[in-house]
Nucleic acid binder design. Structure first.
Length: 471
RNA sequence: GGCGACGUACCCAAGUGGCUUAAGGGGAAGGUCUGCAAAACCUUUAUUCAUCGGUUCGAAUCCGAUCGUCGCCUCCA
């Protein structure tokens, strides 16, 4: 049984998809006007964990992530750089795909773009106007929130409080300052499309309503996004979709906590952010993913070097076990698998953790307990059992690899026959000879110099291995 | 001002009424291994959950107050 915290009901509830065995999931994607930062990455990676766990459980997941490719910020940037808006959008759409690939994020089933759904958007705006939920003012179309009685149900806000604390500029063309644009009249030099209200472009919120409806249906299972989207974005989506379709919109709402820096939200407007591409120069995608996995998706997480370094060290425990399995596998025998590892119990604990609102930190704990047991079992066996190694491998594969995406059994096997590696092996052999001759200054020199090059020698019981350092 | 979240060891972080006199990771300490190291592996590391009251047979977990931190109410993952 999978329990999830639903922002809409503000409580944990059992997750039951609309259609048995199938899940339709929508996550708000990027506005493609810049490289995305690791705060954005946290949402994308958490979505990835959730999606992959649902697939682990056997669900067929249709996962849609929108790309907002027409918007004020894109236009602003295009004007500054004196290029067409589409050029900006294309450039950063390409960058987005490059970055999520580096982060080992499984591609969505579909990435609908706003500019490719203008007809659907216009149709939905028209429906809202026809049904009386929206009004035309000049070439703009606004949503009249007073017509949607349950406005505020997701964010827990009420309209009166909002008006009182409103920092929205008074726009005289709107009936109510909180009414939001569904369609914006074109200004000179802006990209625009022909509509029943004159040429213009869609407002921000409407694309998600129109595209989710088109690709996932009127009512679908999961809608997720960052905490800051609850209001107004998601609130407005509900108002649009439920008014237009007269049917419930998303059934379960998940919201991701922020990645903070110095306990402040990391955001482009505050300027305190790192782009993913810069960040990947210093830390591996596995480290970033594991850093995120160790905190619950909904909780705020403070970014820190210490935290990243800690995650990297923890990650090495998993990688060490993987390396150990790889090393032992060729010499393993068919002796029966008689270990103290209770595999079934570990699967159960892992699933129990993930079933409790995708509790990845707890699941990581299970993973570490498993690693400890696996190491102990391997320590106690003078000869490795093929079956045991395979079982250990299967568990790591199913959890750490397939869901967290934090390691791999295939790493570096292809490049291991390079000249560089042969030279390292040669130096190791030289050092062993030096050690045999008790020429320790020479052996230490080789060790130290290789270390300076980022190659760590590891003297084992009967052989010396090496490891290239990386974050 | 309105709404909401949170405060657990040196640091990060699960746990939200009895299974927990609080998982896991980092750090630290000890051990095995080693020529010595490093790495690896093993062991140890909170009678206590911001503070103060209350409810209960029983609370870190529920309720109230206080202090502190953060977010949303404008674009933001």
């Amino acid at each position: 049984m999978l329990n999830v915290y639903n922002t809409l009901t503000r409580q944990k509830e059992e997750f039951i998809p609309l259609e048995k065995g199938k899940i339709k999931m929508y996550v708000c994607g990027p506005t493609v006007y810049d490289y995305f930062h690791i705060g954005n990455a946290r949402s994308f990676i958490n979505s990835d964990f959730i999606r992959k766990y649902l697939e682990y459980k056997g669900y067929e997941v249709t996962f849609a992530m929108n790309l907002t490719d027409i918007d004020d910020k894109i236009i602003k940037k295009a004007n500054t750089e004196n290029v067409p808006a589409s050029e900006i959008a294309n450039k950063f759409t390409k960058a987005f795909f490059e970055d999520i690939t580096l982060l080992r994020i499984k591609p969505a089933t579909i990435y609908p773009k706003a500019t490719e759904h203008i007809d659907d958007i216009i149709a939905m705006v028209k429906t809202l106007v026809d049904k009386g939920y929206a009004y035309v003012s000049g070439g703009d179309v606004f949503y009249d929130i007073s017509k949607f009685t349950s406005y505020g149900k997701l964010s827990g806000k009420n309209i009166d409080d909002l008006i009182e604390g409103s920092r929205v500029e008074i726009n005289t063309t709107k009936t109510n300052p909180l009414d939001f644009a569904l369609w914006k009249a074109a200004k000179p030099g802006e990209p625009s499309w022909v509509s029943p209200w004159g040429s213009g472009r869609p407002g921000w919120h409407i694309e998600c309503s129109a595209m989710s409806c088109k690709h996932l249906g009127v009512t679908f299972d999961i809608h997720a996004g960052g905490n800051d989207l609850i209001f107004p974005h998601h609130e407005n989506e509900i108002a649009q979709s439920e008014a237009a379709n007269q049917k419930p919109f998303a059934r379960y709402w998940f919201h991701f906590g922020f990645l903070n820096i110095n306990n402040e939200k990391m955001s482009k407007s505050l300027g305190n952010f790192f782009t993913v591409r810069d960040f990947l120069k210093k830390y591996s995608p596995e480290t970033i993913r594991f850093f995120f996995a160790q905190t619950h998706y909904g909780a705020p997480l403070n970014f820190s070097e210490e935290g990243l370094d800690g995650a990297h060290k923890g990650l090495q425990k998993i990688e060490n076990l993987v390396a150990r399995i790889n090393e032992l596998t060729p010499d393993a025998t068919d002796i029966s698998s008689d270990t103290s590892i209770d595999f079934a119990a570990f699967y159960e604990l892992f699933e129990k953790a993930m079933d409790e609102d995708f509790n990845t930190p707890k699941a990581c704990g299970v993973l570490f307990d498993f690693i400890k047991d696996a190491n102990k079992a391997l320590n106690s066996q003078s000869q490795s059992s093929k079956a045991t190694l395979l079982e250990i491998r299967k568990f790591i594969e199913a959890t750490a690899v397939n869901i967290f995406g934090i390691t791999s059994f295939e790493k570096e096997t292809e490049s291991s026959v390079s000249l560089e590696n042969e030279l390292i092996e040669l130096l190791i052999a030289t050092r062993i000879e030096a050690k045999k001759a008790k020429q320790y200054p020479l052996s230490d020199f080789i060790r130290d110099e290789l270390k300076k090059l980022g190659i760590m020698l590891q003297d084992g019981k009967d052989k010396t291995t090496y490891k290239k350092s990386s974050q």
